[in-house]
Design a protein around this nucleic acid. Structure first.
Length: 669
DNA sequence: AAAAAAT
C-alpha cells in the first residue's frame, strides 16, 4: 500500500505481528506472564470490603435522597451518599488493586525491586474514597461482593460470579432494551470493509483464544455477542498487534466492542502498569474520549460489562453530573476512563487524573468532537499533558467521516495506522425507507400529529428538531395531544436528559423529541421511525439521524419535513436519496433547480458565510496529490465510498496552508 | 443559526 510521506516520518513504528514489542521500553523476551509479575502488596482481603455492597441496582438508587442527583452509572453504588470521611476500616482499602509498582509495562525487569516499597500515600487513596459507603450501611444492604478481580504476581485472578451484578450488567434475554443481539448476522457479514495500510493483520472470524483473553470471551458470551462484527474482526488483530487504527465507522457497526474487546483483552493478558505510588492521582491505562455525555455513559456501560470480574476498573467522567461522585469513583480505581473532553480537562487541572500511564487512547466520533469545537481540548489532552507520545501508546480513532481536520488529527495522533472503512449493516436502502414531505413550518405540527396517528410502527419514534426551544415546545404539544413523549436537549439538566433517554429506551415514552445531542452515536434499540421535523443544515447530520433506526438488520422508516427553508441542502439531500435508492419527490427536484440558479458557481459551501446553496463541488477537492480525500464508510450512503486511505496513488496530505474554505471543513462537501 | 461541552 502506498504511504504518504508524512507517515514515514514516524520511522520507528513497530512492526506488526509482534504483540509484545510495541510498548517502550521493550521487554526482553517472553514476559507476558512473568515479566509483568507485580509485587504482592499483601492485604488482598479488603477487596471485598472495598466494593462491598455495590449493586448497580436501580431500586437502591431510588432510595437515595431525591434532592441529590446520582448519575446512572453510580446508581445503587454506596458512593452515592455523602462526602464525609470513611470509616476506620477503610484505611487500608484501595491497596488491593494490587498494582504492580516497579515492574510493568514501563519498566525493565530489574526495576521491580523498586516496587517493594509500600507507599503510605498509596494506601491513603482508599480512605478518602470511602466516604459514601456509610449510606450502604445505613440502608442495611451491606453485602459482600467478591466479583472484583485483581492482578497478583503476574496472574489475573478473576472475581467470582455474582448473579445480581450479572442481571444488572447484562440484563436477561427477555429485556428488549438490552438486546444488542437482535442482530442479523447475515447482514452483518454483508457490511463492506476495506482495510489498508502497511502490514494489515488478517481479520479474525470468531471470538476465540488466542488472540482474545479467555475471560474477556466469557464476558462477551454473557453479553450474548456471538460473532464479531466486521469492524471487530479487523480491530481485534490490529490492536492485538499494537497497531494504530483509523476507522471510518459508526455506532451500530459494533464499534464500541471494536475498541473495548481488543483493549480489554490486552489489559487482561498483561496486567496493570506501574503506577506512581507517591501520587494520589488516578493513572488509567485506557482513555476513551467521546463527544456527548450520553455517548460516554453508553460506552462506560459497555466497558463495565466486558470488564466484569476482571482487574480493570472502568470509570466515567462527564459534565453536568456531580463531580464529587466521579472523583470518588476514580479514587476507587480507574484503569479505563471514559470521558467527555471538558470534564477530563477539569480532572486534570484538579490533579486527580494523570495520563502518564495511558497505553490505549480511543477517540470516538472524532468528527463530531471537532464539529463541537473540542479540538483545542483534545489537543491539550493528547499533546500537552503527560500522556505518552504517539509512539508510546496505541491510538484508535473512530469517525464517521474523514474530512480534512480529521486527517490532520490522524496525522498528529496516529502512527503508521491501519485505515479501516466500514459500511453499515446491509445497504441503507434496504433497511431504511426514507420519505420526504413538503410541509411549511406552520403546518408541521398538524402534519406530525397526522403521521403519529396514521403510522403504525412497531417500536420507538424519534423526532429531531433544530432548536432546544422547539424540542420543549413540541414535546409539550405532543403531551398535550396525549402522546407519550419526552425530550432531550442540551438545556435540560443531565438528570432530565438521562431520565428522558431511559424512559424512551424502555418504551415508557415511545416518542422522544431531540436536538442534535441525540443525532449521533446513541445506540437505542428498537427505533422504528425517525422524523426530521426540522431538517438539519448539514446533510451529514441527517444521515446520522436516520441511522438511529434500521439498526441491527431491522427495517426503519425515516420521514423528513422539507420546505423552502431547507433548500440549502436540497442537492445533498437528493444525492443521499438517490444513492440509497429512495424515491425523490418532484418538489425536491424543482427546488433544486431554483437553488442552482441562485447559487452562482454552485459552491456556497457549508462553512461559514458561504450562503449555503448546497454546493458540494469541493467534495473531491484535493491538494495536488492523489484523490485521497474521500474517506468512505459513513453508513454506506455515499455509494461506493469505500476508498482506501492512504490511496495507492500516493496522495499527499493536505497542506495547512490550504485555502480557508477548505481549512475548517467538517465534512467532505 | 443552533447545538454540544467544565463551572
Amino acid at each position: 500500500m502506498g504511504r504518504s510521506k508524512w507517515f514515514s516520518a514516524e520511522n520507528d513504528a513497530p512492526e506488526m505481528g509482534s504483540e509484545t514489542d510495541y510498548f517502550k521500553p521493550r521487554a526482553k523476551i517472553g514476559y507476558r506472564k512473568t515479566f509483568f509479575n507485580n509485587m504482592n502488596n499483601g492485604n488482598n482481603g479488603s477487596l471485598d470490603q472495598q466494593f462491598a455492597g455495590m449493586s448497580f441496582n436501580d431500586k437502591n438508587y431510588n432510595r437515595a435522597p431525591p434532592s441529590r442527583y446520582i448519575p446512572p452509572h453510580l446508581r445503587g453504588r454506596p458512593s452515592g451518599g455523602g462526602a464525609s470521611n470513611g470509616w476506620s476500616d477503610w484505611n487500608n482499602a484501595g491497596n488491593d488493586r494490587d498494582y504492580q509498582r516497579g515492574g510493568g509495562w514501563n519498566s525493565s525487569y530489574s526495576d521491580r525491586s523498586g516496587g517493594q516499597h509500600r507507599s503510605s500515600n498509596f494506601y491513603d487513596r482508599g480512605s478518602y474514597g470511602g466516604g459514601g459507603y456509610r449510606n450502604r450501611q445505613n440502608e442495611g444492604y451491606q453485602r459482600r461482593d467478591d466479583s472484583y478481580g485483581y492482578w497478583k504476581e503476574g496472574v489475573h485472578h478473576v472475581g467470582n460470579r455474582n448473579p445480581r451484578t450479572e442481571k444488572d450488567l447484562f440484563g436477561s434475554s427477555e429485556d428488549v432494551d438490552r438486546q444488542h443481539t437482535g442482530i442479523n448476522f447475515e447482514k452483518y457479514d454483508a457490511i463492506p470493509v476495506e482495510a489498508s495500510g502497511d502490514g494489515c493483520p488478517e481479520p479474525v472470524t470468531t471470538f476465540t483464544t488466542p488472540p482474545l483473553d479467555a475471560h474477556l470471551i466469557s464476558n462477551i458470551e454473557l453479553a450474548r455477542y456471538a460473532v464479531p462484527t466486521p469492524v471487530q474482526k479487523y480491530s481485534i488483530p490490529i490492536v492485538g498487534a499494537g497497531r494504530d487504527l483509523m476507522a471510518c465507522a459508526q455506532t451500530g457497526s459494533g464499534k464500541t466492542g471494536g475498541f473495548l474487546f481488543p483493549v480489554l483483552s490486552e489489559l487482561f493478558l498483561k496486567g496493570p502498569i506501574a503506577e506512581d505510588t507517591r501520587s494520589r492521582k488516578a493513572h488509567p491505562s485506557v482513555l476513551i474520549l467521546a463527544p456527548t455525555r450520553e455517548l460516554v455513559s453508553q460506552i462506560y456501560d459497555e466497558a463495565k460489562k466486558f470488564a466484569y470480574r476482571s482487574w480493570v476498573r472502568p470509570a466515567v467522567a462527564y459534565g453536568g453530573a456531580d463531580i464529587g461522585a466521579q472523583l470518588r469513583q476514580i479514587d476507587r480505581g480507574c484503569d479505563l476512563l471514559v470521558a467527555t473532553p471538558g470534564r477530563l480537562v477539569d480532572l486534570i487541572e484538579r490533579a486527580r487524573v494523570s495520563l502518564s500511564n495511558i497505553k490505549y487512547l480511543v477517540l470516538d466520533e472524532a468528527d463530531r468532537m471537532l464539529d463541537m469545537g473540542f479540538e483545542p481540548q483534545i489537543r491539550r489532552i493528547v499533546e500537552q499533558e503527560d500522556m505518552p507520545g504517539v509512539q508510546g501508546r496505541v491510538t484508535l480513532m473512530f469517525s464517521a467521516t474523514f474530512p480534512r481536520d480529521i486527517q490532520y488529527l490522524a496525522r498528529d495522533f496516529l502512527k503508521d495506522y491501519i485505515f479501516l472503512s466500514v459500511g453499515r449493516v446491509g445497504s441503507t436502502s434496504e433497511n431504511i425507507t426514507q420519505k420526504v414531505e413538503y410541509v411549511e413550518d406552520e403546518d408541521k405540527r398538524s402534519v406530525l400529529l397526522d403521521i403519529l396517528h396514521s403510522t403504525e410502527v412497531p417500536g420507538l419514534t424519534l423526532i429531531f428538531v433544530e432548536t432546544k426551544r422547539m424540542a420543549d415546545c413540541l414535546s409539550d404539544y405532543l403531551l398535550g395531544s396525549n402522546f407519550p413523549a419526552t425530550s432531550i436537549h442540551g438545556d435540560r439538566t443531565q438528570r432530565e436528559r438521562e431520565r428522558a433517554l431511559d424512559s424512551f429506551r424502555t418504551g415508557r415514552t415511545p416518542i422522544m423529541v431531540a436536538t442534535a445531542v441525540a443525532a449521533r452515536g446513541l445506540d437505542i434499540a428498537n427505533v422504528s421511525h425517525v422524523i426530521s421535523y426540522d431538517l438539519p443544515t448539514d446533510i451529514d447530520d441527517y444521515v446520522h439521524r436516520i441511522g438511529r433506526t434500521g439498526r441491527a438488520g431491522n427495517t426503519g422508516l425515516a420521514t423528513a419535513f422539507f420546505n423552502r427553508n431547507n433548500k440549502n441542502i436540497v442537492n445533498d439531500f437528493i444525492d443521499i436519496l438517490k444513492e440509497a435508492n429512495q424515491e425523490v419527490p418532484g418538489f425536491l427536484e424543482s427546488i433544486a433547480r431554483e437553488a442552482r440558479s441562485f447559487s452562482g458557481r454552485g459552491r456556497g459551501g457549508r462553512g461559514r458565510g458561504g450562503g449555503g446553496f448546497g454546493g458540494r463541488d469541493y467534495r473531491k477537492f484535493n491538494n495536488g496529490g492523489g484523490d485521497y480525500y474521500r474517506g468512505g464508510g459513513n453508513d454506506g450512503f455515499y455509494g461506493g465510498g469505500y476508498t482506501n486511505y492512504p490511496p495507492s496513488g500516493g496522495g499527499r496530505p493536505p497542506s495547512r496552508d490550504a485555502p480557508m474554505q477548505y481549512q475548517n471543513k467538517t465534512s467532505w462537501f
